[in-house]
Simulated scan of single mutants.
Amino acid sequence: MRVVMFGYQTWGHRTLQALLDSEHDVVLVVTHPRSEHAYEKIWSDSVADLAEQHGIPVAIRNRPDDEELLSLLKEADPDIIVANNWRTWIPPHVYGLPRHGTLNIHDSLLPKYAGFSPLIWALINGEPEVGVTAHMMDEVLDAGDIVDQRAVPVGPHDTATDLFHKTVDLIAPVTVGALGRIAAGDTDFTPQDRTQATFFHKRAEEDIRIDWNWPAEDLERLVRAQSAPYPSAFTHHRGERLEILAATVSEGRYGGTPGRIFYREGDGVVIVAGADARTGRNHGLAVTRVRTHDGRELPALEYFTSMGGYLTARP
């Protein structure tokens, strides 16, 4: 099939590489300009560079809604558009232009975790598995019929970076598998159960600020979700920003006020956590490694030289 690819960052790069390695013919690539957004500088393999290395025409757009691009798409005469990590709305006159429509590749197990940063949100929420879905694009974002979907388990110590590497390897088989069904004339795809749909926004500074009213189990997953190279989860100590780089759920149960710097346990310092911490039924978050406001990384036992005081959401 003649394919136009819409994509960005490493997800788009992997999709384009899968298409180049397949029997299909990539006739045009559309990608975004480089971004300085903190999350978009991560996993930033260039789709444009890969396309140009293979002599494929490239159009760079923030939004795919201009007449010049529409003319290029019509000239390319695609059988299908394949999109992965395209960051803005694709209008119906674009996604409906090819003979077989548009196939979107999304890094979640749809209908759950539509939208943005699905791996991070899924890890924070304790999902047992994550994955990649290929679905037909329609007027609702990430809501079209599922053509192919594959999952991988989330391990007890996995970080968001681990999950990225697990799921990015699914892009090629999901993409090529879905295109194989479409090329063979199969249209018996699986409608999404919209009663199970969840939609998440882009992550920002406020989303990595630690709320000590959260249970320790949730905070431990937040720390893993914000593992390097993502921005680290942070709190404040004595008015200064303090990033939490590593932590575990405490073995003991600790009562008191959320955010209290309470007790040395093993290699960590336990911070009281949970909205109902006053009951004494909660585990705390045993912080093991931190980064100070001036960039120093050190074990929590070295940073917290005495117990007492509080970690707070704001200075």
Rank of each mutant, 00 (worst) to 15 (best):
L298T: 14
R34D: 14
T133M: 12
T133Q: 05
R291G: 04
W11R: 14
K166P: 06
A83Q: 10
Y230F: 15
T195L: 11
G266M: 04
T102I: 01
D186N: 13
D66C: 10
G144Y: 09
I146T: 09
V4L: 03
P118T: 10
G180H: 10
L69R: 13
A246K: 10
D294I: 14
A59D: 06
P128N: 07
Y8V: 10
E129N: 06
A114M: 12
W43G: 08
V174F: 04
V269N: 03
P78F: 09
V152E: 10
I60S: 06
G259R: 08
E127Q: 14
M137C: 02
E220D: 13
K74Y: 02
S108N: 00
A273L: 00
F304W: 03
P98K: 00
H54Y: 12
P33H: 05
L123V: 02
L110T: 11
Q17D: 12
G12D: 02
L285P: 06
V154H: 02
D276K: 11
T167P: 04
N104T: 09
S46T: 13
K41N: 03
V290N: 01
G96W: 00
W212E: 01
P191W: 13
G274H: 08
D145H: 13
R238D: 12
L19V: 04
V94G: 07
G144L: 08
I124A: 03
L141Y: 14
E220W: 12
L179K: 05
T175D: 00
D107H: 12
D45N: 13
D294K: 09
M1E: 05
D169L: 15
H201R: 14
F199A: 08
L285W: 07
D193T: 04
F164D: 09
A184E: 12
T133E: 00
H13W: 15
D65C: 07
G295V: 09
G308W: 01
L73H: 03
I208S: 11
V30N: 04
R253E: 08
R224P: 06
V176N: 00
T161F: 10
P156C: 03
W43S: 08
Q196A: 15
A313E: 10
K41R: 15
D188C: 02
T133A: 12
G266I: 02
H157S: 13
L222R: 06
S227D: 14
K112H: 11
E240T: 15
R221W: 00
A122E: 01
A18G: 14
E36W: 07
D207M: 10
R194D: 12
E240F: 08
K41H: 08
V290L: 09
G239P: 00
T161A: 15
Y39F: 15
A178G: 10
A151V: 09
T312F: 02
L163Y: 01
I56N: 05
M307V: 11
L97G: 04
E265V: 02
V154M: 05
A143T: 11
P229D: 07
P215D: 08
I105T: 11
F6M: 13
A197K: 13
K74W: 09
P229K: 04
R203I: 15
P91E: 06
R238Y: 04
T102Q: 02
I105Y: 07
G96L: 06
K166G: 03
P33Q: 07
L242Y: 03
A233R: 04
I208P: 01
N85W: 15
H54L: 06
H293L: 06
R87G: 11
